[in-house]
Design a protein around this nucleic acid. Structure first.
Lengths: 235, 235
DNA sequence: ATTAAATGACTGACTAGTCAGTCATTGTCA
DNA sequence: TGACAATGACTGACTAGTCAGTCATTTAAT
């Protein structure tokens, strides 16, 4: 076997010294030393999730190496397997745990009773563009689009938790707008996707083409809203 | 335990060799019409491209195996390397050669002089939805969205050849519509993306969610056009 | 016969997942 | 309180593959 040669060559300086106490004391960048065992474990789990997130977004599922995730998380590879069954279920769980706060954040818009439907939708879009489209969360959406077909469970989850609910909410808003006379196009309630379409365009544009041509996503969305609600007073 | 997606895919063993070649040879019941050297080579190259297309779409770049492409193309693995430098440049060239006819096909709309701008856009959308969104070409678009960030050259090419030209053409059409009085919203010319947005939504929906909820993309697009051009006479 | 095209067994670099061992923390008893 | 045992989180070398790319050999067109 060539293992012997490879083995020794692979890692020449393991530097076993600063494992536990060593790693804890000098790492004052962490606000929490956390000498409690369970706390530290949870902290590590969080570090793994964050690292995995970055790696998966940057490389996609198949091209991501667990060694890299471990390195980025500051953890040994074996530790990953204390928290996740395997690479695939780590990916799925990752998406799930990332989606929930994203959706929560998005639906946490203060439902001002006096506001017009247009203002509500615009506020929503503003939040989405600022908090999702122009941040790493947007890459998460792109990641789901990219890997969805190969991870039906992820696509299902995303449909149930985000798409289905989001469209239902948007439909309700559209119907409110129609009832109030703000929206003339009654057929729009059949396709809430139309309301959301420019937001998704913004996400994709951001990842792929913003280098070539920056896109003012919010202004684009406002023009889109003009189509639906009619021209603004203040242009 | 290995990756489930990879594994299940691995099972589907393509049968005898001339799967693709047979499909390519147009007007003959003969499996092997070409005895000319250059012709056969070109045929093989085409088979490799078609097979690679299918595999890359189904699995993404990193998870696709050259062995599978070779098997599907009815060719030995070494043959691939007679036509392409390596996996990566094969992918890039593949996208390039697939995009060109796709764009050509799309811009080959007969520019009827008497038609309204709305009819032109609608005809365009109809072609797009029938020929791209609901076919394998749509998956190609999704593939570019998925792999674009990891293949800047592909993203660049796509921007130059498709996005940039497409938006310019669409902008011209919008300006024509404004000049003719068909379109009231002058700001729309700033964001031709809005015009196209539902078409992209349709492509993504098709790949990810059509199992859960089918989407009548053409009707959606018509409703979208109602927003831009005003309500249709015949609802 | 000559030579380009095609083949597929082979190589070696790479990686998901394992597991025997380590050691900081926690629990227990005197 | 101090000593010692039990725990289990953590480690990383290791195994068992996988797969891109090569090349000596075979096939077949000219």
């Amino acid at each position: 076997m060539t293992n012997e040669a490879t083995k020794s060559a692979r890692k020449s300086a393991p530097k076993p010294a600063d494992r536990r106490a060593g790693a804890r004391a000098p790492a004052s960048s962490k606000p929490k030393p956390a000498s409690n065992r369970a706390e530290r474990a949870a902290e590590r789990r969080g570090a793994i999730i964050a690292a995995a997130m970055d790696e998966f977004i940057a490389r996609g599922f198949a091209a991501t190496r667990l060694d890299d995730i471990a390195k980025r998380a500051g953890v040994a590879k074996g530790t990953i397997y204390l928290h996740f069954k395997d690479k695939e279920s780590m990916f799925e769980e990752l998406i799930r745990t990332a989606i929930v706060p994203l959706v929560t954040r998005l639906w946490a818009t203060p439902p001002q009773p006096g506001a017009s439907v247009r203002d509500m939708v615009e506020g929503f879009a503003k939040t989405f563009i600022e908090e999702v489209a122009t941040t790493r969360r947007g890459d998460l959406v792109r990641l789901i689009v990219a890997e969805g077909p190969r991870f039906p469970e992820v696509a299902d989850f995303y449909y149930r938790e985000v798409v289905s609910r989001g469209l239902a909410g948007m439909r309700a808003l559209i119907e409110l707008g129609i009832a109030r006379g703000e929206i003339q196009h009654k057929n729009l309630a059949q396709f809430p996707q139309i309301m959301v379409a420019p937001a998704l365009i913004a996400v994709i544009w951001q990842s792929l083409f913003s280098r070539h041509a920056p896109l003012d996503a919010l202004e684009m969305f406002r023009v889109h809203l003009d189509l639906i609600f009619g021209e603004r007073r203040t242009a």
